[in-house]
Design a protein around this nucleic acid. Structure first.
Lengths: 204, 204
DNA sequence: TCCTGCTCATGACATCTGTCATGCGGCTCT
DNA sequence: AGAGCCGCATGACAGATGTCATGAGCAGGA
């Protein structure tokens, strides 16, 4: 009999994290050897525990699960990466794959898929929801430039042009130009809608 | 020895729901007898299963856990209600309590509190995070009128005044007036900030 | 080298938003 | 009955926002 699969679990909500650990604990061949609540603690915990698979939530303080995945992929390429998220945003899937993820799961998939994904990635397989993959491909890449994205992200909390200008060290006119082009690229009417759909697509 | 505590679990994300079920399943005295993924399925499931405690997530399709709590409280007052949420918004706590909840838990509390809360509410106790309770009291009640809230909610997706006016069967001027008073009550600069703040406080 | 795209800027313009004063009718509480 | 709040409306005004034309400097690719 082979030894158990060692899993690192990264998820900021304690209750969910421990519940997932309980779920995985029911499997004979899987052992959760480390749990962290922040993205920026993932790498150290992985190093300290010699893990086989890292299970990473995207929405975390410190840094996102996607950033953590990129770090892990670079520093410990042998560790398999399963990215887990609440939101099945195509842009997230794309970023996760670019960061070296082996599997991408949404939290409203059946729980059984979790343990299954852990086993599959260890066997060298990739696990991706086909619907989501199709959506990610159909939608194309993020059309926004770095600056446009930055300005849009900064505008998301309702800041005015003047505040954005000082915060980003730009002129007010430039801020308006960036927002205007972003609005046109996203085919919407105003910044609020632009923020909303950029978020939905995972482009923010 | 007394019989086990029968729990209904309502949470839309399958993976989280089943993980929580696994967690509760580890307790000898607790049994998850029903699981639902929608708010509007809660009442029927509770009726069908003679449950002792209902564990309700707030963010659910169909209807919110708070609305489901209100229905349960009215139809089956013997069922104890534990409201569970991702967001520790004071306004949520307030609404949950008004709906008859016995406990209010946030998902980033330790997992052990879940089973503990189930036992406590069955014993007639109330379980509320003191910090959150203080925040809810300090913040005061929702200052927005029904109409203001409705307009603000409709404005949240970036709709323009004209769209809001037709959608709500109001004149554009009236829409602007409601948004203006909401903006002033929330002490912010524009509708986007108003939406953000109202959301954070759980007033939307 | 030329072309293209990104960043940053300005000015002018039309439209949208937010504010304010004011008014009316309805409801509730005292 | 009167006071006070709410819902709804209008008109006028200032300021914010979105669009467009235009141009500079700087990179990278053909």
């Amino acid at each position: 009999m082979s030894s158990t699969i060692k899993v690192l679990l990264a998820e900021d909500q304690s209750m969910v994290r421990e519940a997932l650990a309980a779920l995985l604990g029911l499997e004979d061949d899987i052992e959760v050897v480390a749990q962290v609540a922040r993205g920026d603690e993932v790498l150290a915990a992985a190093r300290a525990n010699d893990v086989d698979v890292a299970l990473l939530d995207i929405e975390m303080p410190g840094c996102t699960g996607i950033e953590a995945a990129a770090q892990l992929h670079k520093a410990l390429p042998a560790v398999r990466l399963v990215v887990l998220t609440t939101f099945g945003r195509p842009g997230y899937l794309r970023s996760a794959m670019e960061a070296g993820a082996d599997a991408f799961l949404v939290k409203d998939a059946p729980a059984a898929q979790l343990a299954e994904a852990v086993r599959k990635v260890l066997a060298g397989e990739r696990v991706i929801d086909p619907t989501l993959a199709a959506a990610a491909l159909a939608e194309g890449a993020n059309p926004l430039t770095d600056r446009e994205r930055e300005v849009l992200r900064a505008a998301a909390d309702g800041s005015t042009n003047a505040e954005l200008a000082t915060a980003l060290h730009l002129s007010q006119g430039t801020v308006r130009n960036y927002l205007s082009t972003a609005i046109q690229k996203l085919a919407v009417r105003n910044r609020a809608e632009a923020v909303r759909i950029a978020r939905e697509k995972g482009w923010l």
